[in-house]
Design a protein around this nucleic acid. Sequence first.
DNA 1: TTGTATGCGTTATCAG
DNA 2: CTGATAACGCATACAA
Lengths: 335, 335
Amino acid sequence: MKPLNINDIAKAAGVGKSTVSRVLQGQNHVSPDARARIESTIRELGYQPNMVASGLRKRRIQTIGLIIPDISNPFFPEITLGVQQVADERGYAVLLANSGWSNDREEDLVALAQRQRLDGMIINPVHISLAALRAFGHSVVVIGTRAAYREFDAVGSNTAESVQLALAHLHALGHIHILALPGPRGQDSTRNREAAIYTAMQARPDKLPQIHYCEFTKSGGYDAVAALLSLTPRPTAVLCGNDLIAIGMLAGLRERGITVPGQISVVGIDDIELASVCCPTLTTVHKPKREMGMTAANMLIDRIEGNIQSPPQMKKMSTHLVIRESTAAVGISSG
Amino acid sequence: MKPLNINDIAKAAGVGKSTVSRVLQGQNHVSPDARARIESTIRELGYQPNMVASGLRKRRIQTIGLIIPDISNPFFPEITLGVQQVADERGYAVLLANSGWSNDREEDLVALAQRQRLDGMIINPVHISLAALRAFGHSVVVIGTRAAYREFDAVGSNTAESVQLALAHLHALGHIHILALPGPRGQDSTRNREAAIYTAMQARPDKLPQIHYCEFTKSGGYDAVAALLSLTPRPTAVLCGNDLIAIGMLAGLRERGITVPGQISVVGIDDIELASVCCPTLTTVHKPKREMGMTAANMLIDRIEGNIQSPPQMKKMSTHLVIRESTAAVGISSG
DNA sequence: TTGTATGCGTTATCAG
DNA sequence: CTGATAACGCATACAA
């Protein structure tokens, strides 16, 4: 019924509980003889130390939180996998939570993490306030490159580079009239993409892409087709804020009989698995999602364990273009 | 530095710590006056109770474990979302871990869950032994319909029904020579699918599908194309153990210039999001993944909270066929 | 209704 | 090298 505790082991092994505790923690000031006896009784009895108790005492529960918007968005499982791999290797468990893109839920989750006394937290913030994040009181690593959070460690991909790569590709193909779907209006990651567009277009400000806002989802891209078709002159290419938007757009275009890349080229960002399977396969900018997760976890645990005292740093992972079937030179109206 | 504790609040509010504890737990034996004072000081000071300490005392940490093979397999995020939604509503956090289809890792993770004194666990078992699962010592809900685990609560989809639906569909289209890819050899879920095939074919044992084993992955399906092509007479349809296999197969067939569904029909199982986006879109058997997760979480928490004393039950969620583009009548060789 | 004392299972301090 | 003993922060039986 009640699980074994350290006293049971101590008694069974004929030693004091402190000695048991010592071998449990791998300390060296314990005689080989005692150690052997203790280890064998632990194994025989199948004792599993209570991490809750030790967590209370040590103020460390070997668990970190990971707060993401939505695990069913294919971008995040890869991040998660990277985080878990490193966490696991370094002896931490991962508590996963979805904020559902909601500010209230983000703040609730951080408060929960605080009550749970998690050792640290990795968060892909959507709206959460700095105050709420600070209140957590432990180490935090942010996923993303938003300036607002620069007081925390962060890891993100190079948005400027991504957008630059995508636009350069379209330009090289001769596209002048481009529609950009940077994301939902009023979200920081949307603004980041917009800023990147402006930067990339500094040389030819007259050719700035049209901007249309939509959710980071398939249906967001699907619905954007209407906006696309209402523009004159009609854009010959679409730069999508992420692959899901792009895939929704592909579906919408196909339904209307518009060929890709014949009549319109589509490029995404993220390079999720879907991108290599959809039809046509999607030209997109690859983000090293798994590495981002691993890096975030390493940064966080380094902080937790005090290996780093330096000021917060931001790691921008570089991206690269993956050319597939959804883009072609303008005017090649194979459709 | 050190977070506030219940004593700080008691002192600041001019009451005993037990009274604070009472309002924290929403007990009613406390004067409105004291309650008001305590609540306001809690809010003012931003106190967050330490769940580690209360967990140690109450032997409940309001956290459940979820062990799945691989979160990057699109089947599992949906399950996860269902689990998290219910867990959240009922006041539990979810600790997520990937077993990576490895037996050792499964057992390690269960042992970890035990050390962490999780209140319960939902697991999609791959190889783990009953002994290891029993050793956990708390409530367990299994995802899947494997007979070996019937001593635990379980929720799964009706495999017999899924396979039956898929085969009936192919038969209705006139397919006689069918290749089945039930999964990797020696895994229980593979055996389940095989058994379902035999059951479904009881009426015409002479027309039993050929069986070929492969991993539950895209590359598993991709590689299986070679096996398919080596058969004589060549099958006109393939029943895949899951959608990933099917999608890999689609890719492999396309590479070899074999048209789907013109020359070969392909049907999957799961109905992951990819299935509606790949090319051609995939006919498949829909599983209510989200509901499965929700059901599992509800069953688990009911057990944890003692709402259920009945013997372990198995809930089989029913499935339905989703007909898309990858299947057609035999002989319609549009390719 | 409220406060006091004790224990939850570990770890850390400190003599021995 | 080892074993008592006191925290860790909270919940609860019991007393007031």
